[in-house]
Write a protein that binds this DNA or RNA. Structure first.
Lengths: 211, 211
DNA sequence: TGGGATCGTATTGTATACAAATATGGAAGG
DNA sequence: CCTTCCATATTTGTATACAATACGATCCCA
């Protein structure tokens, strides 16, 4: 509801009201609120009331910057620990991405699936539970979904190419190379997001908090 | 209870049992378990049962490595945004640390207070809610407390000196310098921890999970 | 003896009731 | 017209009951 805009930034989230709206009791609503709070999608006042957090474009930039650093780190660790078997799985995932972007009209769902698998394998090979936990709070899949449809065909193709290069870095077990590519890959995705966001804002699709 | 060793690694954490032990109902226990889980102090099976996580020395190394990176990043951001007023507050905190380590027998409590304030100010000036949230899950104050008493007087003095150097970097608004010092500062703390841990293990104070 | 079904027990998920804390609106006073 | 205070209405915190699920031991049958 937050991500769809049904609940605008700043809206109060009263447990009772949400419970009734969702047809459940307050207990599961409370748990959900706590998780959303830890993901910074919800903020709480000093007196324990919950409100929809105000995700300005600066917050998104902040999140992407941290994600670039952490995924870069993950790529470095993965390169140092890469197995031939995992490498093969990454190739499979990127072939799916390649197939999705080569179509006349990009298959965004296929792209996202392949993309998710690709990054999940890296995180798995990186073998750091904490790193995985930190990245988990940073990557809001619904955000990715909502915006991926607005990425240009060109941007999707480039993404596929960067994955190719990552595979090359992994094949050579070159951690520094993998980290550099990954960091750039995420930051490019950020700018694609920012461009798409600006475009949507101009079309009036996104309501900014300032309005 | 986990950190004191009262609950050994691998012990099952049944809500009812904990509730009775703590004299509260299951509801607050559930919330606590969820938070401990997000901090990786507790793990859950695929069928939702909770157990004390197994924090091997590798996990601690992992956490420190990530913390070094993130606090380094925070120091860089803080240097770029530093105000004279915040700088003054950091000096105050480090004077407390200085006073604590200059005593014949180090005042560990005073040291920890000053240390906490010092790092909190940096995080505040860094002005990234997400970075603060990520670091929050990484810095288990009880872990710091439990081990700080075993740090050598020499290590505490050196820590004070590194804070001095951080202040110098902040005074010059030199982000790269601040990041470098901070990263080294945390990694040094890790090795002090690892040394102390080894010493404790030899004395039999710490029971390893392997036993 | 080994593998698998089954039933009792243990544990978690959810709903609901009530207590405590907090916010709100209006009346009184300056 | 603004502030202060209080009564009332919201909202959250906790306890408890019951339902759903998972575990483990036992029994049964090759």
């Amino acid at each position: 509801m937050i991500l769809s805009g049904e609940l605008p930034a700043g809206a109060q989230l009263a447990e009772e009201a949400l419970a009734e709206k969702c047809g459940v009791s307050r207990t599961p609503v409370r748990e959900a609120l706590r998780r959303l709070e830890s993901d910074l999608l919800v903020t709480r006042t000093d007196t324990q009331r919950s409100f929809v957090a105000d995700w300005s474009i600066d917050d998104v930039a902040d999140a992407f910057e941290l994600r670039a650093m952490l995924e870069g780190k993950a790529a470095r660790r993965a390169a140092e620990r890469m197995t031939d078997q995992a490498l093969e799985r990454m190739c499979v995932a990127n072939r799916q991405i390649g197939a999705a972007v080569r179509k006349g009209v990009p298959d965004v769902v296929g792209f996202l699936e392949g993309n998710r698998d690709f990054h999940a394998i890296i995180l798995e090979v990186a073998a750091s539970r904490r790193l995985a936990a930190l990245l988990g709070t940073l990557i809001e899949q619904p955000v990715v979904w909502r915006t991926a449809h607005h990425y240009s065909h060109e941007a999707l193709r480039r993404s596929h190419g960067e994955h190719e290069e990552l595979i090359a870095a992994f094949a050579r077990r070159d951690g520094a190379w993998a980290e550099a590519i990954m960091t750039g890959h995420i930051l490019r995705a950020y700018h694609a997001y920012a461009d798409a966001h600006r475009g949507l804002a101009e079309q009036g699709v996104i309501r900014e908090a300032a309005e």
